[in-house]
Lab assay of single mutants.
Amino acid sequence: APTVVALYDYTANRSDELTIHRGDIIRVFFKDNEDWWYGSIGKGQEGYFPANHVASE
Rank of each mutant, 00 (worst) to 15 (best):
A1D: 15
A1N: 15
A1L: 15
A1W: 11
A1V: 10
P2R: 15
P2Y: 11
P2I: 15
P2E: 15
T3K: 14
T3W: 06
T3M: 08
V4K: 00
V5Y: 04
V5P: 04
V5A: 03
V5G: 03
V5L: 07
A6K: 01
A6F: 04
L7N: 06
L7S: 05
L7Y: 07
Y8L: 09
Y8S: 11
Y8Q: 13
D9F: 02
D9S: 08
D9H: 05
T11K: 08
T11F: 09
T11S: 07
A12Q: 04
A12G: 07
A12N: 01
N13T: 13
N13Y: 06
R14W: 08
R14I: 06
R14E: 10
S15C: 08
D16N: 13
D16S: 14
D16T: 14
D16W: 05
E17D: 04
L18I: 09
L18A: 03
T19A: 06
I20T: 02
I20L: 13
I20D: 01
H21A: 11
H21W: 04
H21G: 05
H21Y: 05
R22F: 01
R22G: 04
R22V: 10
R22C: 06
R22W: 04
G23N: 06
G23E: 04
G23F: 00
D24T: 02
D24I: 05
D24K: 04
I25L: 13
I25S: 09
I25D: 04
I25H: 15
I26D: 01
I26R: 02
I26V: 09
R27G: 05
R27M: 07
R27N: 13
V28C: 04
V28D: 03
F29Q: 15
F29C: 15
F29N: 11
F30A: 15
F30S: 15
F30T: 13
K31R: 12
K31A: 07
K31C: 10
D32T: 13
N33D: 14
N33F: 03
N33S: 13
E34Q: 09
E34V: 11
E34I: 12
E34H: 11
D35I: 11
D35G: 09
W36S: 00
W36K: 05
W36C: 02
W36P: 00
W37Y: 12
W37Q: 04
Y38L: 03
Y38C: 01
Y38V: 01
Y38M: 00
G39F: 00
G39Q: 01
G39L: 02
G39H: 05
S40Y: 11
S40M: 10
S40F: 02
S40T: 10
S40Q: 14
S40G: 13
I41V: 14
G42F: 11
G42N: 07
K43H: 13
K43I: 09
K43A: 14
G44S: 09
G44D: 14
Q45I: 10
Q45P: 08
Q45K: 11
Q45M: 12
Q45N: 06
E46Q: 09
E46I: 05
E46F: 08
G47P: 00
G47R: 03
G47A: 02
Y48M: 03
Y48E: 00
Y48W: 13
Y48R: 09
Y48V: 05
Y48A: 03
F49D: 06
F49I: 06
F49P: 00
F49V: 02
F49A: 02
P50T: 01
A51C: 07
N52T: 15
N52V: 07
N52L: 06
N52M: 06
H53N: 08
H53F: 11
H53T: 14
H53W: 07
V54Y: 02
V54K: 00
V54Q: 03
V54I: 09
V54D: 02
V54C: 14
V54R: 01
A55R: 14
A55I: 08
A55S: 14
A55V: 12
S56Y: 09
S56M: 14
E57R: 13
